[in-house]
Simulated assay, not measured.
Amino acid sequence: MARIAYVNGRYVSIDTPAVAIEDRGYQFADGIYEVCKVVRGRFCDLERHLDRLERSLDAMGMPMPMSRRALALVMEETWRRNALPDAVIYLQVSRGTAPRNHAFGASMRPSLVVTVRAAKFPSGAELEKGVGVISLPDERWANCHIKSISLLPNILAKQQAAKAGCREAWLLDEQGRVTEGSSSNAWIVDGEGRLVTRPLGREILGGITRSVVIELAKRDGIEVVERAFTLEEAKAAREAFLTSTTSLVLPVTAIDGTPVANGHPGSVTRRLAELYAEAEGMATAA
């Protein structure tokens, strides 16, 4: 079945040329994006994703391309036309199309693209055995809380991780503290069994899965500490894991080739993975 996309009011084949050459998303990476998942026909955390979309647009001085309700309907219809029970919905909003100029007008009309692909979640082996990450300097811009489509440092870091045979790269600030992964949030469990992750701020993107995991952990009686932690702390931690919409709660069992604790997923990580799978309707999925 051909993949179908929504592009500025039309549903078209994914192979159809549909975005203007002078779209500012293409010319300047002047846009934002969101990614949410559908599990067994149910959109997961949609309102949280739309909230973050609005926050990013507001930070960029861009209007919503349409009302929240209309956007949700477009996402649902694009998903329906692709007939995938488990799917990843990607939407991108650029500032719009205009003759190439760094400055932009205040009355530009945003461009909206929505695409759907089959969901690819961590394999059973990755969930059971964990994955490795490498550490790299954080070379991104100073507004990582905005979900910008300008992702060059992220993709280069992800590529270095892939070349090293690792799932992800954990990025380090100038003090040697972990900010987050190239496309995920980073977590450790300290010696006292507390969950530690970097606090919200300009240095990280506030992950939707991150927010859900914090709520689930607190509800389950797991203490959560939002603070920066160093690479050395991570390597010496009792447990480590990463989270994202498509990575779920994924154990990290090696950092820069050094095993975390005994090199196996820990009990807190496993518990949170179970709670998250239940909350997202994935208890027997992935």
Results as ranks from 00 to 15, higher is better:
7 V>T: 03
12 V>G: 08
16 T>H: 15
17 P>Y: 14
18 A>L: 02
21 I>Y: 03
26 Y>W: 10
29 A>Y: 01
30 D>M: 00
31 G>C: 11
35 V>H: 05
41 G>M: 04
47 E>I: 02
48 R>G: 10
49 H>V: 00
50 L>D: 03
51 D>N: 07
52 R>C: 04
56 S>V: 03
58 D>H: 14
62 M>W: 15
62 M>D: 14
63 P>F: 07
73 L>C: 01
74 V>C: 06
80 R>I: 00
81 R>H: 09
85 P>M: 01
86 D>E: 10
90 Y>F: 09
90 Y>D: 02
91 L>Y: 14
97 T>S: 04
98 A>E: 15
98 A>K: 12
103 A>F: 11
114 V>D: 01
114 V>N: 00
118 A>G: 15
126 E>W: 01
126 E>D: 07
127 L>S: 12
128 E>W: 05
129 K>G: 08
132 G>V: 07
132 G>Y: 03
132 G>P: 09
133 V>F: 03
135 S>F: 13
135 S>W: 10
136 L>S: 00
137 P>E: 07
145 H>V: 02
147 K>R: 11
147 K>M: 02
148 S>R: 00
156 L>S: 03
163 K>H: 14
167 R>D: 03
170 W>S: 01
175 Q>M: 07
175 Q>I: 01
182 S>W: 13
185 N>G: 14
188 I>M: 08
190 D>R: 13
191 G>P: 09
191 G>I: 08
195 L>H: 09
197 T>R: 03
198 R>G: 00
199 P>M: 07
205 L>M: 12
207 G>H: 03
207 G>E: 06
213 V>H: 13
219 R>T: 13
221 G>R: 11
227 R>A: 12
229 F>K: 02
229 F>N: 00
231 L>K: 15
232 E>N: 07
234 A>T: 10
234 A>R: 07
238 R>P: 08
245 T>L: 08
250 L>V: 03
254 A>T: 15
255 I>F: 11
257 G>T: 00
260 V>I: 14
264 H>F: 14
265 P>D: 09
267 S>C: 10
268 V>R: 04
277 A>R: 15
277 A>T: 11
286 A>T: 15
